Computed example of a mutant assay.
Amino acid sequence: MEVVGVIKKIEAYWDKRSDSFDADHDTEDLQAWMEALNNLLGTNQNKNVLDLGTGTGFLANMTAKLGHSTIGIDISREMMNYAVKHAKTAASDAVFMEGSVLELPFMNETIDFIINSRLIWTLVEPDLAIREWLRILKPGGKIMCFNRMKEGVGLNIGKVNIYEDEEVDNHLVVKSARMEELKELLERNGLVEVQIQKLPGLTRPGYDYDPWFVLMGTKVSETGVLIS
């Protein structure tokens, strides 16, 4: 199956899952998330944010509320219908648009922060994706990938045949990546200062989930200088 066909099947899956996926975020401590995002992004509201695989707008609406110009992009219209509804409820001015994280409709070096939540394990061509993200990222800009991970191990996507299509699932080459493999994915595609940081206190007590981590890296200038 060609990649285009795989992506169409993934899109259909998330359209179907939109209702239950939206309900999943009821388990999150939104105030703790706002504080964590504010610490990671900083207080300079002149920096923009692109939320890839935005889904129901979980991250995008929070970064917009923090004052950052924010765009959320996703292949699933049904997921983004929830994002727009939540934006109205939260008085968020985030903008949402349909698109693929493998081919982004933005000019080179125009984005300060690229963020995503539970996206990286779904990537069918992760190296191509990271290089595309790097293309639109400004020198000194950062990529931040938020994921629940098994501590000291890495991604722990427990389901087998998630998309109910073995060929599609075989394309999920990052699904069970260890922490070292995730860091190497960013490093081999040109990011520096790559690290994985645990984000304690984000999930509400009483929910037996793997803890949240953020995989981060920074883009250097063409001369190899790290711009802060």
Rank of each mutant, 00 (worst) to 15 (best):
E2N: 13
K8A: 12
Y13A: 14
Y13F: 15
K16H: 07
D19G: 12
D19S: 12
F21W: 15
D22E: 05
D26K: 15
D26S: 12
T27V: 11
L30G: 08
N39C: 05
L40Q: 13
N44Y: 00
Q45Y: 00
Q45G: 00
D51W: 07
T54N: 01
T54F: 02
G55V: 11
G57I: 09
M62P: 02
A64T: 09
A64F: 04
K65R: 14
K65W: 04
R77V: 06
R77T: 08
R77Q: 08
M80R: 11
N81Q: 09
N81V: 03
H86S: 13
D93E: 11
F96R: 03
E98W: 05
E98K: 15
E98I: 14
L104M: 13
P105F: 05
E109S: 15
S117T: 06
R118H: 00
T122L: 06
T122M: 04
L128F: 05
A129H: 09
I130H: 02
L134E: 11
R135T: 14
L137K: 13
L137Y: 10
K138R: 01
G140D: 01
G141D: 04
G141V: 10
M144F: 11
C145P: 00
C145N: 07
F146R: 14
R148D: 04
M149S: 02
I157S: 12
N161S: 07
Y163C: 05
E164H: 14
E167H: 09
E167K: 12
V174E: 01
K175W: 05
R178H: 14
E181V: 06
L182A: 11
K183H: 04
L185S: 06
E187T: 14
R188K: 07
I196Q: 04
Q197I: 15
T203S: 05
R204M: 07
D208C: 10
F213E: 12
F213H: 15
L215F: 07
M216L: 15
M216P: 07
T218A: 06
T218G: 01
T223P: 01
S228V: 00
